[in-house]
């Protein structure tokens, strides 16, 4: 078939234009902004003054930003282990041919189609409520008085509570990824292992795990790019202990609660750059770590 330059331009033109406008240009301009000082986000470039690394310096001396980076690190690590761990476990269970397997899979995935704000409020207003909440009621019913007294939404426990909600709403997505990978593995491997007398744990350890290693690595990278944009839940749970870099950047740009003197687009841009670099470095590190030979499935 004839592939004229003209038809290529027609097919690719709109997509390329949007890409340049919404990805290429903004990334370049945000990176530039991080080295300049300006009054507002919309200040034209000629009103910018060069600041060198001043924005970054200021950023790393801002307590709230440091707290938020520490928080996102904890969210990435702890809820990452919990989410991917539960996802793997549920994927393993739901590939064994249980009754109502399809229904169970679809139900575990369900929270992923609900908006993060709504998920946040379902937990904040209902599950964690200490008067009529699900957990308090449940623990009272079981007679675990101490657990029933637990204040899920007090200052110190807010972070834990938010992480539980985050794990719950993300697990289904990764579970589906793992299920797809596990179902790609040929039955023959399991059959012959079964004949050799391998039990379910050995089969998981020596067949499933090595064969889905690539997908596990990919999911860890995906987890990183997802968590860096952690925002809606942090805003809903709204507490210093649940502050994330995304929320910090948003507040530094628009100052909804703090006074207007805290608005600083240069620092916000620096924060965006730091977040992006962190995500890229961590993802590359993970890719490097997990890069191993691929097995033929």
């Amino acid at each position: 078939m004839k592939q004229t330059k003209r038809s290529i331009a027609i097919f690719l033109g709109p997509a390329a234009l949007l890409y340049v406008l919404v990805f290429f240009y903004p990334v370049v301009r945000t990176t530039m902004m991080s080295f300049f000082e300006m009054r507002g986000i919309s200040s034209p470039m000629k009103e910018w003054t060069f600041a060198g690394l001043k924005n970054f310096n200021k950023l790393f001396h801002t307590q709230l930003f440091l707290i938020s980076m520490k928080n996102i690190g904890k969210i990435w690590l702890y809820t990452g282990i919990a989410t991917l761990g539960f996802a793997l476990l549920l994927a393993l269970i739901l590939t064994q041919g249980l009754k109502f397997q399809k229904f169970f899979r679809a139900s575990v995935y369900l929270p992923n189609v609900i908006a993060a704000v709504a998920i946040g409020y379902m937990w904040l207003l209902y599950v964690f409520n200490n008067k009529f909440g699900l957990l308090t009621t449940l623990f009272k019913l079981l007679g675990w008085e101490k657990m029933a007294q637990f204040q899920w939404l007090s200052g110190n426990n807010m972070f834990l509570s938010m992480c539980i909600a985050y794990v719950f709403s993300n697990t289904g997505y990764f579970m589906m990824m793992y299920i797809a990978a596990m179902e790609n593995i040929s039955r023959d491997y399991y059959d012959s292992a079964h004949i050799e007398g391998a039990n379910v744990f050995q089969r998981f350890l020596y067949i499933t795990l090595p064969l889905i290693k690539g997908v596990l690595g990919m999911s860890a990278v995906l987890w990183t790019t997802r968590t860096i944009g952690f925002f809606a839940l942090a805003q809903v749970f709204s507490n210093t202990s649940t502050f994330t870099p995304m929320l910090y950047t948003y507040r530094t740009l628009f100052a909804t609660e703090a006074g207007s003197e805290s608005v600083n687009p240069g620092v916000a841009a620096a924060s965006a750059v730091v977040m992006t670099l962190t995500a890229v470095i961590v993802s590359q590190g993970l890719k490097h770590l997990i890069k191993t030979e691929n097995y033929e499935i």
Binding site: P26, R29, T30, T225
Partner: peptide, 17 residues
Amino acid sequence: LIGLAIPGIMIIMPMFS
């Protein structure tokens, strides 16, 4: 693939302006 990894926060400031 690069576009898939760019977080929204890098995009919104120039778009806003």
